[in-house]
Amino acid sequence: MTDSEIVELYKNKAEAVACKIVEYKTIEEAIPYIIKVVEEKAPCELLDDEDVEKGPLSPNGVPTRIQPVLAAPHCDEAFYKKFSEACEAKGYKCISKGLRNYLAGIDVGIASAVLGIAETGSCMVDTSKEDIRLSTMICEVSILVLKKSTIKPTLISVAEDLRSHIGASSASYTTFISGPSRTADIERVGAIGVHGSLEMHIILLEG
């Protein structure tokens, strides 16, 4: 497979697991897109107690956030500066740590993928840092940033990368993520959004 075929295959398989894919040259250029995602989404449900101003009940009967919360822990400093400014301008709360204070739920979590797997439409994300892990779990919309050049063709072809990644520190927690959380446990009817993310967007970057 050529590189562009691998990227096409990735897109195809990721879309098959309900990922929305957008392409940008740099992550900074994607900031307006991320803001738009927040504008268009329903208010975040508060699934646990939190001392925060609450909006009307959601269709599931739970209170909602008035001020959206976006998390982008352990990301590139230059990006975070621009991103938090954009959030501030909109009146959103942007956080980069302390996600345990938001276990009731956040609107959007942003994380970078180490690599992509074309065959399955997956992203490998280093979630060793607890805040990164939480940001991809308790968010309603998970946004993963993936560089095209890091996409590998098959599951088996990522073995070496996974190995060196695991071996790089004394303890690690790595996740392959393929789309939002899902279930078919009731009458085998597929439903998206169980305990984890309700939506997943992949920002594909050149290079």
Binding site: T120, S122, I166, A171, I177, S178, P180, S181
Partner: peptide, 13 residues
């Protein structure tokens, strides 16, 4: 093709 998550836990992190 793959489950939505595959988690690889290595050590007490």
């Amino acid at each position: 093709r793959l489950t939505a998550n595959v988690t690889w836990i290595n050590g007490a992190g």
